[in-house]
Computed example of a mutant assay.
Amino acid sequence: MKAIIDPTKNVALYLQVKDILVKRIQEKVWPPNTLIPTEQELMEEFDVSRTTLRQAITMLVQDGLLEKKQGKGTIVKTQPLIGGSLGKLKGFAEEAIERGLTPESKLIRAEFKKDLYYEKTKLRVADDEEILVIERVRFADEVPIAIERSCWPVHIGQILNKEDLNRAKFYEVLESEGILLKRAKEKISAMNATIYEADLLGIRAGEALLEMTRLSFGFDDKPIEFTTTKFRSDKYHYDIELTR
């Protein structure tokens, strides 16, 4: 079935093309390590210019979904990097799916705690109240990518704690309950993996990790989430778009 590009739609043509290409990669229409159709074939299918098509493909190359091979063409990468984008509030699962990967989680622990005073300060929770702490290893296509430790106020924790935390996509669960995230503050730093962290991630102790700390707020500007995620630096990157 021919893909339909709508020139009257309020979305740039190259972005429409990109979305179709991503979907085909996600659905394994083009399996990993195989060539995608030629530029001429895709131009004819989408009825777009070479410039438009190349914009879409370039974005997917930058995202780690595709790779250009000199003299061969463009192939689907076997395991693209997962990447976050500064300025966009997304969860790990959303980032993985956008890159054609299957996200999974392995629960380490989930419990309500009263003695995490630093985290409670971040969440503006009273000293005598509990917060829910959830620790998970995050996977993409069965490869361990990150260790995630998230803290939630008790009223949100009670919602999340009813879910299968090996499968739950937290933001989707909250949105289904009418709890929407408005904004977040993030801090990114480098660190080295401990023996425990290295064992969970399948790497050597001392290898570099990318640590991201996120404090998310709802539309009432009250903190909803305080999460620290430690990513394998060989499997994750951040995209930053600058303007002048």
Rank of each mutant, 00 (worst) to 15 (best):
G87N: 05
V133Y: 03
Q62E: 12
R109F: 15
T74H: 01
K113T: 13
A12W: 04
K69I: 15
I36W: 10
Q26K: 13
R109E: 15
D115A: 13
I97N: 11
K77V: 04
E95R: 15
F46H: 02
T102P: 09
A56W: 00
E45C: 01
K122G: 07
D141G: 07
K23Y: 05
E129A: 10
G83R: 04
E129F: 08
E45L: 06
F46N: 01
A56E: 00
E135N: 05
G100H: 09
E142Y: 09
Q40T: 01
R99T: 03
Q40R: 08
V61F: 00
T78P: 01
E95T: 07
L53T: 01
E67Y: 05
L81E: 02
V143Y: 02
M59C: 02
I20V: 14
G83W: 00
A96S: 12
E142G: 02
Y14M: 10
G100A: 11
P80H: 03
E148F: 05
G100R: 12
K106Q: 15
E129T: 07
P37E: 01
E94T: 15
P7Q: 03
A146K: 07
T102R: 14
R149V: 15
G71W: 01
P31Y: 02
D127N: 13
D47Y: 00
Y117E: 14
D6G: 08
L132E: 01
G64H: 06
L123F: 08
I147Q: 09
E111W: 10
K88F: 09
Q16V: 01
R109M: 13
T52I: 03
K69H: 10
D19T: 08
L21C: 03
T121C: 08
M59L: 10
K113R: 14
R138I: 01
R24C: 11
Q16M: 08
E67T: 08
K113M: 14
V11Y: 08
D115Q: 11
L53Q: 03
L35E: 11
E129V: 04
A56I: 00
L101M: 15
E45M: 07
L13P: 06
W30G: 07
E111Q: 14
E135S: 12
N10L: 14
I134S: 07
S105V: 05
I131D: 03
P31R: 09
D115T: 13
L107N: 12
M43F: 00
Q70E: 10
A12E: 14
F92Q: 10
T102I: 15
